[in-house]
Structure formats: C-alpha cells, structure tokens
Amino acid sequence: MSARVESLPIICEIHAPRSSQAAALAEIAAVCARDVGQALIARTLAIGADCVEPSLTLHLPVELAEAQHRVWCLACRLACFCPSARVSVLVRGENTFAPAPPRVSRRRKTA
C-alpha cells in the first residue's frame, strides 16, 4: 500500500443527544485512533432530541478498507469503549465504479 493511502485520515461523524456526550465520544475516538496509528478527523453533525442513540460513523476510502486492518481495529475499539453508541463503517467507493473512458478505435481504413 502506498504512503499516500496510509496517511489518509478517516472522518468520524458523531451524532449524540447531548453536546457533553458528543464531546466525550470525540475524545474517545481521537484516543482510539491514536492508539492504532490511524489519522482521524472527528465531526459532530447532530446534537439534540432527534438523536435517539449516539452513533459514530467512520467514513473511509475504499483503498483503506481493502488493505488496512487498523481501520477495523479502530471500529472494534470504539464499539468496546462506547457500548451505548452504534458504530458503523461507511466505505466510499465512488471512484471504484466510475465508468471507464471510451475506447478509441485504431482500425485503419482500407481503400
């Protein structure tokens, strides 16, 4: 795996009913990511009554998902240290299924 892929940060979306809970989840996520050696950016997206349960969603490119066990170690650690939160992993594979560029025909015309 290339050094560029290894240095890609994972984005961790946090949803929580209370801001204090969101802050605690962000701190736990940062510590767990540091422990497994994975760059992480925590983003709190929703706080309030519409959040029934706290959740952590790890967003990562397909290159990290297919070649790095650290991502899965991080998800497992978060599930252990945040038992009341739902932990999920969302793999962004949008570039994986991009259409191939059109092929140029190289036939010679005959007279």
Score class of each variant (00 low, 15 high):
residue 46 A to I: 05
residue 22 A to P: 00
residue 85 A to K: 11
residue 103 R to D: 03
residue 32 C to M: 05
residue 20 S to W: 10
residue 71 V to I: 13
residue 90 L to S: 06
residue 92 R to I: 07
residue 88 S to N: 06
residue 63 E to Q: 11
residue 102 P to G: 02
residue 59 H to Y: 05
residue 66 E to P: 01
residue 105 S to V: 06
residue 84 S to V: 14
residue 81 F to L: 15
residue 103 R to V: 09
residue 8 L to Y: 00
residue 40 L to H: 01
residue 105 S to H: 01
residue 81 F to H: 13
residue 87 V to T: 05
residue 77 R to C: 12
residue 23 A to M: 14
residue 20 S to P: 07
residue 75 A to N: 02
residue 79 A to G: 12
residue 12 C to T: 09
residue 99 P to S: 10
residue 63 E to Y: 14
residue 14 I to P: 01
residue 7 S to K: 08
residue 48 G to Q: 09
residue 76 C to P: 07
residue 62 V to D: 07
residue 38 Q to G: 01
residue 80 C to G: 12
residue 64 L to W: 00
residue 109 K to E: 11
residue 18 R to N: 07
residue 105 S to C: 03
residue 38 Q to F: 07
residue 27 E to T: 15
residue 93 G to R: 13
residue 101 P to C: 04
residue 78 L to P: 11
residue 40 L to P: 01
residue 2 S to C: 04
residue 30 A to H: 11
residue 44 T to A: 02
residue 48 G to I: 06
residue 41 I to P: 01
residue 78 L to D: 08
residue 92 R to M: 09
residue 22 A to M: 05
residue 50 D to V: 03
residue 89 V to E: 02
residue 72 W to N: 04
residue 105 S to E: 14
residue 37 G to E: 12
residue 71 V to E: 04
residue 53 E to Y: 09
residue 35 D to Y: 02
residue 110 T to Y: 15
residue 44 T to W: 02
residue 98 A to I: 03
residue 97 F to T: 14
residue 85 A to S: 12
residue 99 P to K: 02
residue 40 L to F: 12
residue 24 A to V: 14
residue 28 I to H: 01
residue 101 P to F: 01
residue 71 V to L: 13
residue 54 P to S: 13
residue 61 P to N: 01
residue 13 E to W: 07
residue 39 A to H: 09
residue 41 I to T: 08
residue 21 Q to F: 04
residue 75 A to G: 05
residue 30 A to V: 05
residue 10 I to Q: 07
residue 63 E to C: 07
residue 33 A to S: 15
residue 94 E to L: 03
residue 69 H to R: 11
residue 34 R to Y: 12
residue 84 S to N: 11
residue 40 L to G: 00
residue 87 V to M: 04
residue 68 Q to L: 12
residue 34 R to V: 10
residue 56 L to E: 02
residue 34 R to D: 14
residue 51 C to S: 05
residue 16 A to T: 04
residue 83 P to I: 15
residue 107 R to P: 08
residue 72 W to Y: 14
residue 54 P to T: 10
residue 29 A to T: 12
residue 100 A to H: 13
residue 67 A to V: 04
residue 82 C to R: 09
residue 14 I to C: 07
residue 44 T to G: 03
residue 46 A to L: 14
residue 106 R to E: 09
residue 79 A to R: 15
residue 26 A to C: 07
residue 21 Q to A: 15
residue 34 R to L: 06
residue 111 A to E: 09
residue 77 R to D: 14
residue 61 P to H: 04
residue 2 S to K: 05
residue 72 W to E: 10
residue 52 V to G: 04
residue 46 A to T: 12
residue 38 Q to M: 11
residue 22 A to N: 01
residue 37 G to S: 13
residue 35 D to K: 02
residue 72 W to R: 09
residue 80 C to D: 11
residue 68 Q to V: 13
residue 81 F to G: 04
residue 78 L to Y: 10
residue 76 C to V: 14
residue 44 T to L: 03
residue 95 N to I: 12
residue 44 T to F: 05
residue 71 V to A: 02
residue 81 F to W: 10
residue 103 R to Q: 11
residue 93 G to K: 09
residue 52 V to H: 14
residue 98 A to N: 10
residue 27 E to L: 12
residue 69 H to L: 04
residue 15 H to G: 08
residue 102 P to E: 08
residue 11 I to V: 00
residue 98 A to E: 03
residue 66 E to A: 10
residue 102 P to Q: 03
residue 107 R to S: 12
residue 111 A to V: 10
residue 97 F to A: 01
residue 104 V to H: 03
residue 72 W to D: 06
